[in-house]
């Protein structure tokens, strides 16, 4: 049964309204995480400290939402003892809320670097970061759309497209290292940009995690392990 047919309602109507409330909360936390990414990148581009601080403040709401979702999922599992696709959806919701919270953390981490990067330096490879952020953010958006619409195909595509973000990362990584070798005075700022690229790469991975969860919730099967763009030769590579 590779489709979910959520058209049939539960005999206990309150269960349906709990589920739709949780879906709404995931949409909300996801929307906030995406916003954090775009605001963090804007703060970085404009060297806007106030905006960066706003991202940090925003993150508290994301944390609060995660807690709220977790509480609700746990309560629903306890009260309704869900089965089959309901159970899978609730487990996915629980995991997705945690993953999206981490995405928010990465955006916050990017925002925190705004104050410490000397933006008078011209570091060419960093100019790719906005496009990379755009690609990562789009993955998050698509993963959440896949969740909202129970779309296993879209979830599958997200996993596939994570390569694009990984490729960005590898390109930026190499060119930044080269740039730093040639311009030792830029090493401080260059290192920050490296971390920002790494954060965006991790956001892409987490979008993939969300997509995997969606795929499982919808189909009951794990998505086929595919080759990840993780580059073991990357000195910043870490499985966190």
């Amino acid at each position: 049964m590779n489709t979910t047919n959520n058209s049939t309602e539960h005999t206990v109507k309150a269960f349906d309204s709990d589920i739709s409330e949780m879906r709404g909360l995931i949409a909300e936390i996801g929307g906030r995480a995406e916003k954090s990414i775009s605001l963090a990148m804007k703060a970085l581009a404009d060297n806007d400290y106030d905006l960066a601080r706003e991202v940090v403040k925003n993150d508290k709401q994301i944390d609060a939402l995660e807690e709220k979702i977790d509480r609700m999922v746990i309560q629903t599992i306890a009260l309704r003892a869900p089965m089959a696709d309901d159970l899978r959806e609730l487990v996915a919701t629980l995991k997705i809320s945690g993953v999206v919270e981490r995405i928010g953390d990465y955006a916050k981490n990017i925002a925190k670097r705004v104050a410490v990067i000397d933006n008078n330096l011209h570091i060419e490879p960093a100019s790719l970061l906005p496009a990379m952020a755009q690609a990562a953010s789009q993955l998050v958006d698509d993963a959440l759309t896949a969740y909202a619409t129970r779309d296993a195909d879209l979830a599958d595509q997200v996993c596939e497209r994570d390569r694009v973000v990984d490729d960005f990362y590898n390109t930026i990584f190499r060119s930044l290292v080269t740039h730093m070798v040639d311009n030792p005075k830029h090493i401080g700022a260059g290192a920050h940009f490296l971390f920002i690229a790494k954060n965006l790469e991790r956001i892409g991975d987490h979008a993939t995690n969300v997509a995997e969860m969606v795929y499982f919730a919808v189909t009951g099967e794990n998505i086929g392990e595919r080759e990840r763009g993780d580059n073991p030769s990357d000195p910043l590579y870490s499985e966190d």
Partner: peptide, 19 residues
Amino acid sequence: MFTNPQEERTRDYITGRYG
């Protein structure tokens, strides 16, 4: 059966969507 039933009728029953 309880995490991924193959038949729609099973799913509807165990998830409380029956009837």
